[in-house]
């Protein structure tokens, strides 16, 4: 047998681990500061998920994209387009809403697929390709309608309102809704894909070295196009969840969502340079984001724009930490090399 698993943490786990630690630290601090006002209740904990599940779904897809060394700026626009299509086709054109759910999911995946093709076949950098996708999807929203359309469809309404009560001792009842279940399902799918499928393992290899992956004979085209198609699908799911939250379709929905998603993924320990990252880390990235929002609302006197500042500071911290771990890893390698001499 080969060497035993040693008790030492591989440097690549550190960013994701620190995200987890940071989440619990932030949660504990919230408990100390606002515990008397119900920060630690199950209800508050549940809302960490319910309020931002759509971001979480998008973050899972984005994690795959960033691990592959790419970026996807189109997620907010594609999600907005999803809300718009769903609202317009069910409310104005009276299409079947179950059918429309399938249509928007396919549309999201198709848009992602096309962006993936653009990236792989024509060698257009992801930043540009998805910027094109972002403008296209946002533009399409307003071609469909420049107004906000309220969703009254009974199926969509009931799906959006469906929730189950969590057993809790406190007086305040805690609920989780369909968004949370969807998020968990997508998260599990993300974990399984990345950990246990050739496609997922190929994404890691691709992110670690594109040229190498090609020389190793990996199906890089299928991998790259697949990643963006999957992320397009996730954007559509996020859009559906968001429309369950607001019961409306509007071209101005979710402006700048891509930035919240990307920053959560990075805070969750995925290296922007690609090759390293875990969907579970992104879960904690989203949770940290949610906890910051909770801090602001519990404080009551802070402007909600402090969220952006806090996220900015955290991003700075995590980016610096990523650089430091890379430098440390290199130093370790050099020392090993010298010892070998």
């Amino acid at each position: 047998m080969n060497g035993r698993r040693r008790f030492s943490v591989d440097l690549k786990y550190i960013p994701a681990l620190s995200a987890i630690i940071l989440f619990f630290a932030a949660y504990a601090i919230g408990g100390i500061l606002y515990g008397d006002r119900g920060f630690l209740t199950t209800r508050t904990f549940a809302t960490l998920f319910t309020d931002n599940a759509y971001l979480g779904v998008s973050a899972v897809g984005m994690t795959l994209v960033i691990i592959s060394g790419g970026i996807d700026l189109s997620v907010g626009s594609v999600a907005a387009l999803t809300t718009m299509m769903l609202a317009y086709f069910t409310e104005v054109l009276h299409w079947n809403s179950a059918l429309m759910l399938c249509v928007v999911l396919l549309t999201g995946a198709l848009l992602g697929f096309l962006m993936g093709l653009l990236i792989d076949v024509f060698d257009v950098p992801p930043f540009i390709s998805t910027l094109i996708g972002m403008f296209l999807a946002r533009g399409l929203c307003f071609i469909i309608s420049i107004q906000s359309i309220t969703i009254n469809d009974p199926l969509l309404r009931s799906l959006g309102k469906w929730r189950i009560k969590l057993p809790t001792a406190a007086r305040a009842a805690a609920y989780i809704n369909l968004s949370v279940f969807t998020f968990i399902a997508i998260l599990i799918a993300g974990i399984v894909i990345m950990q246990f499928t050739r496609f997922g393992r190929g994404i890691y290899a691709f992110g670690g070295g594109r040229a190498s992956a090609k020389l190793m004979g990996l199906p890089t085209r299928r991998i790259q196009v697949g990643i963006y198609a999957f992320n397009g699908f996730c954007s559509a799911v996020a859009g559906i969840l968001f429309s369950f939250y607001t019961f409306s379709g509007y071209g101005r929905h979710l402006y700048g969502m891509e930035m919240d998603v990307i920053s959560s993924v990075v805070i969750g320990g995925t290296l922007l340079t690609g090759g390293v990252g875990y969907p579970i880390g992104s879960l904690f990235g989203i949770m940290i984001y949610s906890v910051i929002l909770k801090f602001i609302s519990f404080n009551g006197s802070l402007s909600s724009w402090w969220t952006k500042i806090a996220v900015g500071v955290l991003l700075l911290f995590f980016i610096v930490m990523q650089r430091v771990t890379v430098v440390l890893a290199n130093r370790k390698k050099r020392i090993q090399k010298q010892e070998a001499r």
């Binding site: 190929g202 670690g208 070295g209 190498s212 090759g275 390293v276």
Partner: peptide, 14 residues
């Protein structure tokens, strides 16, 4: 090879 994935995976990637 890809530096970020495990030794075992590098041998069997794909």
């Amino acid at each position: 090879l890809c530096p970020n994935i495990s030794v075992a995976e590098n041998i069997f990637a794909g």
